[in-house]
Nucleic acid binder design. Structure first.
Length: 143
DNA sequence: GCCAACGTTGGC
DNA sequence: GCCAACGTTGGC
């Protein structure tokens, strides 16, 4: 099983919109970057998990997690681009903010893609160690 | 709104 | 294939 981090602007599609969607499931589409397209096409598998990142908003960070319920398949209208289906797994009581992640950017989080300068990919891989560390921050944070 | 970073485009 | 111009991302 792979772990991922998937960014979205909450003004466009945020975790609340996913929570309100039928079966809390949606197609994650609209990716227009070839590196990310290739991840969706070649590396996403049903059962993978992903963090849901809110970007371009007041408090950027991880607001919950997703499960991949369908691996990569072509967008119906533009089949050279790929999408996956995701279902809401958890909504965190409090987000794991970018600021928190920076404060804990030692150990397993040192190489977290989203902490690297100039990172612009909307989907990045997460290691198993990073995944579990971030869940600790979500569950043990007192805000 | 600013701006750094970086992907894409297109002329040559 | 080079590279300057341009567009987009996304934190601040």
């Amino acid at each position: 099983m792979n772990y991922w981090l998937m960014k979205s602007e909450p003004a466009v599609f945020g975790i609340d919109a996913l929570a309100a969607a039928p079966r809390q499931t949606t197609a994650w589409d609209g990716v227009r970057n070839y590196q990310v397209r290739n991840l969706l096409r070649d590396d996403f598998r049903r059962g993978d998990r992903a963090f849901f990142w809110h970007s371009s908003c007041a408090v950027p960070g991880i607001y919950g997690s997703l499960r991949v319920v369908r691996g990569g398949y072509p967008e119906p209208a533009e089949p050279r681009w790929y999408q996956v289906d995701v279902r809401l797994l958890r909504r965190f009581a409090r987000p794991v903010t970018l600021s928190m992640l920076r404060q804990h950017a030692d150990g397993s989080l040192r190489d977290l893609c989203v902490l690297r300068r100039g990172n612009r990919l909307s989907i990045t891989p997460v290691t198993s160690g990073q995944w579990h560390r971030i869940l600790e921050l979500a569950d043990h944070s007192t805000g």
